[in-house]
């Protein structure tokens, strides 16, 4: 199981790197989908199959479809790809690389200093997630649903047919 974790983690990192470096927007989105699927597999290996399934259904299967849908309608041509590749000049890498280095060394320090088990072998199925969501985290669930309702009403208002 550990090997599966490392393989899917590696796939996630590589595909995320490809997301950043692709100049074609749809290709970048495809790599992002692969990255999300890899993360779902990581969840599955860590004993959270419910989170894994939701990652695929909601992120890879719904939100990313909408992204692809919008990008398709924009009909970006080779001009957009050229513009993108200009933005990817070596100089723009300096700042982000420095920040990533800081984060990476922090992570390495944590791994080296904390002893014990890194893999959670505890299994949490759908029932456990549901009990947690509507038990200790019910406030968070309610807040998120309020936010979604506000978004829904906002979208309805924007999409309302105008009466003259």
């Amino acid at each position: 199981m550990d090997l599966l974790f490392y393989i899917s983690g590696l796939v996630a990192i590589l595909s995320t790197f490809m997301v950043i470096t692709r100049t074609n927007a749809v290709h970048a989105l495809l790599y992002l989908i692969v990255s999300l699927l890899a993360v779902a597999l990581v969840f599955f290996v860590l004993g959270a199959p419910f989170a894994a399934a939701l990652e695929v259904i909601i992120y890879a299967g719904a939100i990313m479809v909408l992204f692809v849908f919008v990008i398709m309608m924009l009909n970006l041509g080779s001009d957009a790809a050229r513009q993108e590749s200009q933005w990817l000049s070596p100089r723009t890498w300096i700042g982000p690389s420095f920040l990533v280095l800081v984060l990476g060394s922090e992570l390495l320090y944590l791994f080296l200093s904390v002893e014990g088990q890194y893999f959670s072998q505890e299994y949490s199925g759908p029932k456990a997630v549901g009990i947690a969501l509507f038990g200790p985290y019910v406030l968070g669930v309610e807040l998120a649903s309020l936010l979604l309702l506000a978004g829904l009403i906002g979208a309805y208002h924007l999409g309302r047919p105008h009466r003259h």
Binding site: P49, A53, G61
Partner: peptide
């Protein structure tokens, strides 16, 4: 015999959308 079998089916059917979308694009 997956314990989240139904969710797996929904996940796969939601990924199937990409076939149509990407073919069109």
């Amino acid at each position: 015999d997956l314990n989240i079998g139904l969710l797996f089916f929904l996940a796969m059917s939601s990924l199937g959308v990409y076939s149509v979308v990407l073919a069109g694009w």
